[in-house]
Simulated scan of single mutants.
Amino acid sequence: MTNHLGNIVLVNSQAEVTFGYNRNELIGCRIEMLIPERFRANHPSLRGAFFGHATSRPMGVGSDLFGLTKDGREFPVEIGLNPIETETGTIVISSIVDISERKRLEARLRVADEAVHQARKMESLGHLTGGIAHDFNNALTIIIGNLDIVRRSGEIKTQRIQLALQSATHGSANAAKLTKQLLGFSRQQKLDPERLSLNVLIKGMTGMLVLTLGTGISLELVLAEDVGTISTDASLLENALLNIAINARDAMPDGGRLKIVTSNSYLDASDAITEDALQRPFCCLVVTDTGSGMTKETREKAFEPFFTTKGIGKGTGLGLSQVYGFVNQSGGCVQLESEIGLGTTFRLHFPRLDSEVIPASF
């Protein structure tokens, strides 16, 4: 309870628990001591306005309200104001509710909703892309087949026709590669899974990664000894890691560091779309760079096919979409964290087969 001057006149035991003071430390003091400093200047005028027309109502409707504990911790609150008349004037009872847990739950729900929305969007894009890729592949089969017939016929009369045929064959091969990339995003490519260890695969790729990154970018490996085995297509996993490394290299034109970490993991509710995924163990491959980072808009589109921030002719925009499709087709998921100026982190989760471990020192 406080009077019209803002002095605290009564405190219950729950207020002592919530704010960390005993009642003797509070009674007689100004109510502003329980409010974060940035809100204190306006509080007296708000209090005066309330006492001028004192009615029972919630405080600060539509605003975020905060309390301040004795140890300086801020926490979100809801406050109800109830005036009562006494012989010495109007007293207001402030009912203060700590809503920290509710805010945490709301934040988790927002993250989960965004994850589901993103998954549905990518699923729709996958269906569309897969259909286009299959139709395109059928047309390419006819084109490549007829080109092969012409090449084998021996009826190529001039060097000009021969060069045109070679150019058409080369273009068809590139188009077939593009089709394969699209099928990778749509999770309709053919996998050749095998039991493997992330640690062993990464150590085998070290030389290739160093060459890919070039001078000025250091490579750091932190491979956990207890990482289990997974079942996936080794060549596609290598390709996914190279795609991420190339993007990292391009984001660090002045040099930097690429860190690769392996560990065992579990998914939380914001990442696992199915209940089964929440219960099962995963092996996690984490790739972090110290590059320029991404904006929120770029992060949201990073895995979409043909999206790229590179200049014309410098990328198809299919590298990360392949990573996304391959990992999901392997039964896992990809997480992306990035901020401008703070670098980028990819987390690739693959279902762990069992407790079998291949040491990082293998």
Rank of each mutant, 00 (worst) to 15 (best):
V287I: 10
C29H: 14
H349S: 11
L267Q: 00
T215V: 04
S265H: 13
G171L: 08
L191K: 01
S63A: 14
F326W: 02
S338Q: 06
N7A: 11
R23F: 04
N82S: 14
L211A: 13
R195V: 10
T55Y: 00
A54P: 13
E16A: 07
G319F: 10
H170E: 13
F350T: 00
N243L: 12
G311L: 01
C333F: 06
I244E: 00
V327N: 05
T88W: 08
G6Q: 02
T344I: 06
D64H: 09
E78A: 10
D113H: 15
R187E: 12
E37D: 12
Q189Y: 08
T295M: 15
L34N: 02
S231F: 00
N3C: 03
F66T: 01
L196Q: 12
R299V: 08
L165G: 11
F75H: 05
R108T: 00
V222F: 02
Q335Y: 00
G204D: 13
A277Y: 04
L183Y: 06
A360R: 01
E78F: 04
K177R: 15
R104P: 01
T290M: 15
L105W: 02
T212P: 02
M1P: 03
V61W: 10
L242Y: 09
N12W: 10
N243S: 15
K157A: 11
I246K: 14
L81T: 07
L109V: 14
V116G: 13
S63N: 13
I230Q: 00
G293D: 06
T69Q: 09
A277N: 14
E32A: 00
